[in-house]
């Protein structure tokens, strides 16, 4: 495994995940070990049902492994209580879901600042609102600050989700199929934005996709099939391969 381009941020050790259903067990992940470094952009690739979402959930501590360990910056987190995890997630992770529309009753800026309805930003100097405006502008939505989500296109909605993910200064962003419903221009915009952010802001980003054009712009592709690793492929010069 290629760990050379950064320090280990998060580590999965021999993770298994099974779901108990009325008709039996479903194994979603089997013997998955994975290290994600700081500043790294990782793409999870695999067909539908291969375990991408499950893996992202476990990485982001939204779900617990059935077996194995999740270690974040040296601390085991899969054993923390739900309450501890809430604080942990607030500080470390941001999530972008394929299906999560922004809140319909809030405008773009309010949606961006949404996390701070629930906790105070730490170690910030400067005005949070201004920072929100800056982030939105940097994503090309400067003219949409006070628009409501119903007035936005799909690509713009995904940018609001990215802005909201950035406002908390996360160490890691987890994005489940962030490009699934977008046209090509917007898909490329999203992945390029992720590239830039991971390098400029030191954010580890893991996204899932079944779009190889997108995956090939990551630093690394993790191929999954039926919950098992097929291969873990580093891309030497990511954009060159396109």
């Amino acid at each position: 495994m290629d760990n050379s381009n950064g320090t280990a941020f998060l580590e999965l050790k021999n993770v298994n995940k099974t779901f108990n259903l009325s008709y039996g067990e479903v194994t979603a992940l089997e013997h998955v070990s994975l290290t994600i470094n700081k500043r790294e952009l990782v793409a999870l690739v695999g067909p539908s049902g291969s375990g991408k979402t499950t893996l992202l959930n476990i990485i982001g501590s939204l779900d617990r492994p059935s077996k194995g360990e999740v270690i974040l910056e040296g601390t085991r987190i899969d054993t923390l209580s739900e309450e501890e995890l809430v604080h942990f997630r607030r500080e470390k992770f941001s999530f972008i879901f394929q299906d999560a529309k922004p809140l319909r009753m809030l405008n773009v800026l309010e949606n961006t600042l949404l996390p701070f309805n629930f906790f105070k930003p730490k170690n910030r100097n400067g005005n949070i609102r201004n920072e929100g405006i800056e982030i939105i502008k940097s994503l090309g939505l400067g003219h949409r600050l006070y628009h409501m989500p119903s007035q936005l296109s799909g690509g713009e909605i995904q940018r609001v989700a990215i802005a909201r993910a950035l406002i908390t200064h996360p160490a890691m962003i987890l994005a489940d199929e962030p490009t699934a419903n977008l046209d090509r221009d917007n898909r490329l915009f999203v992945i390029e934005t992720f590239r830039k952010l991971s390098k400029e802001k030191d954010i580890a980003i893991v996204l899932s996709t079944h779009d190889l054009e997108i995956a090939n712009r990551a630093d690394r592709i993790v191929h999954l099939k039926d919950g098992v690793f097929l291969k873990d492929e580093a891309i030497a010069c990511p954009p060159c391969k396109v």
Binding site: L62, V86, R89, P115, N117, F118, T168
Partner: peptide
């Protein structure tokens, strides 16, 4: 439900 998921994912605790 999705809205609740979103709120939780951005850091809302149960009591909030």
């Amino acid at each position: 439900v999705k809205e609740i998921g979103l709120l939780k994912s951005v850091g809302a605790s149960r009591s909030q």
